[in-house]
Simulated scan of single mutants.
Amino acid sequence: MLVAFSVSPLGGESDSVAAAVAEAVRVVRESGLPNETNAMFTLVEGEWDEVMAVVKKATEVVQATAPRVSLVVKADIRPGHTGQLRAKVERVEQHLASGE
């Protein structure tokens, strides 16, 4: 399963969310699951229970710093497939390279 999620504090005294988001990303990286972070989302790959536990823990870390939290989650649930964090991108790149 691949999950793309974004968690962000709402409210509080600062316009910057970077410190709180960094703590959420730290949770993801310490999980040991394959992951990638970009400007909008963090992607995590693994089994349902382990991925959702990481999303929950990352959300709780942000929640500890703010009176309100925004969480967006998108999942690609495809049993029997692993390594899709990179493989999906590689398939697109192959099509681009071949001009298809």
Results as ranks from 00 to 15, higher is better:
L85Q: 09
N35I: 01
S98N: 12
E36R: 15
V3I: 10
Q63I: 00
V21K: 00
V27Y: 00
D15V: 13
E47P: 05
V25N: 08
E60T: 06
P34V: 09
D49T: 07
E30I: 08
V69Q: 05
F41I: 01
T65Y: 06
K56M: 04
R68F: 02
R91P: 08
A18E: 05
V72P: 09
E23Y: 02
P34S: 06
A18I: 05
E100N: 09
V27F: 04
A19G: 12
A4F: 13
S8H: 10
K56L: 14
A75F: 07
Q94V: 08
Q84Y: 10
L10W: 11
V61G: 04
V7K: 07
A64H: 09
W48D: 14
L71E: 03
E100A: 11
F41T: 04
L85S: 05
E30K: 13
N35R: 00
E90W: 11
V25P: 11
V73S: 09
V69N: 01
V7T: 01
S98M: 14
R29H: 12
H81E: 14
R29M: 11
W48G: 00
L85M: 13
Q94F: 02
S6D: 11
E45C: 02
A22L: 09
E60I: 02
E30S: 04
A53L: 00
A75K: 13
F41A: 12
A58F: 04
A22T: 05
V92S: 03
V62D: 09
W48I: 08
V28L: 03
P9N: 03
G80H: 02
M52E: 00
T59H: 15
A19F: 15
E60R: 13
A64P: 04
R78S: 12
P79F: 02
I77E: 05
R29L: 06
A64W: 05
A24L: 04
A58D: 01
A64S: 15
K57N: 08
K56A: 15
A18S: 15
H81S: 11
